[in-house]
C-alpha cells in the first residue's frame, strides 16, 4: 500500500490500435424466465467504451448494473443483443478482459501470490516460472510487495482488493471491468485507493485501453469517470449518457465537481 499502485510496462504486441470503441454493447436485452413468465431485467441497453475512457454504469439498486457488467464480460448470455470487443463478438470470457469484484473473490487457502498466479491458470503460453514472475510483479504494482506469502484472511479489506487488482493486472488485460470495487471498504481506505487507481489503469504504458465500472457512489463516479451511463429502474434502459470533461486529478471541492454531483443525483433520484 505504501508503495502505491504503479503502472506497468506493456509488451508491444499487446498494443492494439483502434479508432472505434474497445467495447460496445448493442441493444442488450435480458429476460429471466420464471415458470411461464418472463421477467425483463435489461431492455435495449446500448453503450460503448472507447480507448482511454473510464466508463461508469450507474442506476438504482437492483436495476441490473452488475448483470450488465457480467454480460459485457462474457459471463452471462443476453437474451438478445451483442457485446463486442474490438468489433469481435464476446460469447464467453476472454483473456483480454479482466474483472474486479466487490467482494474480492479470493481463495482463502491460497496465499496472495497463489491467488494471483491462479488467475493465470488458463495461460498455457506461460511457464510456471513466468506466471510466478508476472504475479509477483503485479502484486508489487498493486502496492503489496512483501505480502506474497500472506493469506487473504490475514489481510485488511483494502489489501484484499489490491490482491484482486493484482490478479486482474497480471492478465495484462486490454479492458478492465470493476463491479463496485470500493464499496466493501471503509470510506478512508476507499478514498485512498481511488486516488491511486485511475493513474494505474489509464496511462500510456498500461495495456488497459478502457475501464468499465459499476458504482452507485455519486462522488466516486464524478471523481473517476469520463463517461457515465445512467440506467433506469428495472427493466433497465439507458436514461442518459453523460461525458464528464474535467481536468484530473479532480478537485472534489470545486463548483464544477458539485454541479456534476447534483446533475447525477437529479438523474438518479
Amino acid at each position: 500500500m505504501s508503495s502505491g499502485l504503479e503502472s506497468r510496462h506493456i509488451a508491444p504486441d499487446k498494443i492494439v490500435a483502434t479508432t472505434g470503441p474497445v467495447i460496445s454493447a448493442e441493444h442488450i436485452r435480458l429476460d429471466y424466465k420464471k415458470e411461464k413468465e418472463q421477467l425483463p431485467v435489461l431492455d435495449d441497453v446500448s453503450l460503448n467504451a472507447c480507448k482511454d475512457e473510464f466508463v461508469t454504469i450507474t442506476g438504482p439498486s437492483g436495476c441490473g448494473k452488475s448483470t450488465l457488467l457480467r454480460i459485457i464480460g462474457g459471463l452471462l448470455k443476453p437474451t438478445s443483443g451483442t457485446v463486442k470487443f474490438l468489433n469481435d463478438p464476446i460469447t464467453k470470457p476472454r483473456t483480454e478482459i479482466s474483472m474486479i469484484f466487490q467482494n474480492f473473490v479470493l481463495l482463502p487457502w491460497r496465499t496472495a501470490l497463489e491467488n494471483v498466479t491462479f488467475g493465470l491458470s488458463s495461460r498455457d503460453d506461460l511457464s510456471e516460472d513466468q506466471k510466478k514472475e508476472r504475479a509477483t510483479s503485479a502484486l508489487e504494482d498493486a502496492g503489496l510487495k512483501g505480502f506474497e506469502n500472506v493469506y487473504p484472511g490475514e489481510l485488511s479489506g483494502g489489501m484484499k482488493q489490491r490482491v484482486g487488482i493484482a490478479r486482474a493486472l497480471a492478465l495484462e488485460p486490454q479492458a478492465l471491468l470493476m463491479d463496485e470495487p470500493f464499496s466493501s471498504l471503509d470510506n478512508i481506505t476507499a478514498d485512498h485507493l481511488r486516488k491511486e487507481i485511475y493513474s494505474l489503469l489509464i496511462n500510456p504504458s498500461s495495456p488497459i485501453q478502457t475501464v468499465i465500472m459499476v458504482s452507485h457512489n455519486v462522488e466516486e463516479i464524478v471523481e473517476l469517470s469520463d463517461k457515465v451511463v445512467v440506467l433506469s429502474p428495472r427493466p433497465a434502459h439507458v436514461v442518459a449518457t453523460l461525458k464528464i470533461e474535467m481536468p484530473r486529478p479532480r478537485n472534489k471541492k470545486s463548483e464544477e465537481f458539485f454541479a456534476w454531483v447534483d446533475k447525477l443525483y437529479s438523474l438518479l433520484a
Binding site: G158, M159, D186, I188, T189, D191, K195
Partner: peptide, 27 residues
C-alpha cells in the same frame, strides 16, 4: 496503514487546520 495514509491525504488536502467535525464529514 491505508487508513492513516487516507487521513493524512484528506487533512492535507483540506487546508492548514481542519475541524474534527469537518474531517468526520469527509468520511
Amino acid at each position: 496503514a491505508g487508513q492513516v495514509i487516507g487521513l493524512v491525504e484528506v487533512t492535507g488536502g483540506l487546508g492548514s487546520v481542519i475541524d474534527v467535525a469537518r474531517l468526520a464529514d469527509e468520511f
